[in-house]
Design a binder for these strands. Structure first.
Lengths: 245, 245
DNA sequence: CCGATGCTTCGACACGAATCGAAATGTGCA
DNA sequence: TGCACATTTCGATTCGTGTCGAAGCATCGG
C-alpha cells in the first residue's frame, strides 16, 4: 500500500487513540500503574484497556512489570514522555489562538506562580536568561545543574545556596509551561529564587489570584542581570530549542 | 465518551496516517511545497492529498500560501517539526533494539561523520560534555551560542574562532542524531572542531567508510577536557533532557 | 479445594476514515 | 474566448479497528 513503512505514522498511530493517549498521559510522571487503574483513567472497560496496552507494549512505548496478580505498566523511557509533551504543545496553540483572552487571563499568562515558583511568559524568559548566561545547564531527566558561576550569581542575588536542600527530585529542574510551550525553573532553587525576588521588591504577588506583578525596580534588575526586557518578554514567540543531551 | 477532549490524541491522529506523515516529513526542512508535489511524495492521488491537506490545515499543523494556480503548503512552525522529530525518535529504537548489529554497523553507531562533523555515540557524548561545561548553550531554533568560556576553550584547543564564518544557519547548531535520539554539534564550529581533533591526532578517519576511530591520545584528551570516558560513552543510555528555552 | 480478584483472549458488531472516479472551481496562457 | 493545468468537492466503496460481552487463565486468601 505504502512505498516505505512510515515509522513516524506508526508511532503516532499508537498515540492517536483517545483511550491510549489518556493512559500514556497518566504515566508521564514516571509512575507505574496497574492495568485496572489505566482502564479507569481512560474511561474504558478492562478488556478494551488490555487490548490497548498490548499494542502500546508491542510498539515499544510501554514497559511492564508483573507483580503477583497485578501488572504494572510504565513508559518505556523519558523519550516517550518527551514526545507526548511536544505533541501536547501542538494543539492548544491552534485551539486558543483566536480566543481573545480576558484581562485577568492575560495577566496570568504574563506571569503567575506555579506552586511556588515563577511561571508564565516571565518565568520562561527568566529561565532562558539563566541558561543563556550559563548559570544553569540542562541535564538528564529534566534536571538542571547549577554551574559554578551560577552558584556565585545566585548567592549574590541573595539565595543561600548552602541552605538549599536537594529534594528527592533534585535541586533545580525544568517544568513545562503549558501556556508558553516552553520550560521554566522549578525545584527548591526555583522556589527560593522567587521568594528572593519578592522580598527584594522586584516582584509582587497578587492576593486574589496566582498572578505576579513586576515592579519598576524589578524590570531594571531583570534587564541588567538576565537581559529580560519589558518589551521583549511577551511578544517574540521564540521557537522551542531542545538541548543537546 | 471521554471525560476531556484529548488534545494529544487529536494531534497524533493527524500524524498517524502514513500519507499525511509523508507529507509532513517532506516539509520538515521548512520549504513550502505545492499540493501536487506533496501528493507525489505521499504516493496518493491529488484528490486524496487535498483531503489530507485540508485536515492538516484545520488542525493547525500546516499553513498555506496561494500563488497563482498553485497552493504552497508549509509547516505551521518549528514546533511541528520538533514534534515530528521526537515522534520519529520513538519507533526506530524499538524496531532496531533486538537486531544484532554487524561489526561495521557497530562502528558506525559508535562514531561517524555526518557531512563533516562528528556524530554517533561519541558525537553525542562530546556535545553533552560541551554543554555540561557551559561552553555552548542551546538557544532558539536549534542554535547553539558559544559562551565566553567556550570561546576561550575552543581557542585553546586550536580552533581559530575569529576565522570561523557564521553561515546562514548560524555558527553552531544542534543536529539530531538518528541512531542515538539525541543531539550532536553541527555547523561551522562543528566542522572545524572535528578537523582539529583529527589533525591533532585524537581521531582518525576511516578511508572506506564514514566511521571514525579514537586514538589512545584522543581518549586521554576527551576524558580530561570533556569528561568523556571510553567505558561510559556507549553503555549508559542517558535520558533525553530538553532545554529550558 | 473453592471463590474472588486482576487481567487477558476470543468473537461479533458497528462506526469511522482512507481511497479513488467523476465532476466542479479557479487560474494562466494563447 | 477556449484550452490546459492545479486543486478542490462530492459520492460510493472498502477496509481497519475500537468497543464490549462472555469465557479463559493466572494469583491470592481462606
Amino acid at each position: 500500500m505504502h512505498p516505505l513503512p512510515n515509522y513516524v505514522s506508526s508511532s503516532a498511530f499508537l498515540i492517536a487513540d483517545p483511550a491510549r493517549a489518556a493512559m500514556l498521559i497518566a504515566l508521564v510522571d514516571g509512575r507505574a500503574l496497574p492495568a485496572g487503574e489505566l482502564a479507569y483513567a481512560a474511561g474504558v472497560t478492562a478488556q478494551t484497556a488490555s487490548s490497548h496496552l498490548a499494542k502500546l507494549l508491542a510498539g515499544g512505548l510501554l514497559a511492564v512489570e508483573t507483580e503477583g496478580r497485578h501488572r504494572y505498566y510504565r513508559l518505556a523511557g523519558s523519550h516517550v514522555a518527551l514526545a507526548l509533551e511536544h505533541l501536547a504543545a501542538l494543539k492548544p496553540l491552534a485551539a486558543v489562538r483566536r480566543k481573545p483572552l480576558s484581562r485577568e487571563g492575560l495577566d496570568l499568562r504574563f506571569a503567575r506562580r506555579c506552586y511556588d515558583h515563577l511561571a508564565g511568559q516571565l518565568g520562561v524568559a527568566v529561565a532562558q536568561g539563566l541558561q543563556e548566561r550559563g548559570f544553569v545547564v540542562p541535564a538528564a531527566d529534566k534536571q538542571l545543574v547549577v554551574t559554578p558561576s551560577g552558584m556565585q550569581w545566585f548567592g549574590a542575588m541573595g539565595v543561600d545556596m548552602t541552605a538549599l536542600k536537594s529534594s528527592r527530585r533534585g535541586l533545580a529542574r525544568q517544568c513545562l509551561d503549558w501556556t508558553e510551550r516552553r520550560y521554566h525553573l522549578a525545584g527548591p532553587l526555583g522556589v527560593q529564587f522567587m521568594a528572593v525576588l519578592c522580598s527584594s521588591g522586584w516582584l509582587r504577588r497578587s492576593k486574589s489570584s496566582r498572578a505576579i506583578q513586576v515592579t519598576p525596580l524589578g524590570w531594571a534588575g531583570l534587564k541588567k542581570h538576565l537581559g529580560v526586557d519589558e518589551g521583549s518578554v511577551g511578544l517574540p514567540a521564540c521557537k522551542l530549542a531542545p538541548s543537546i543531551s
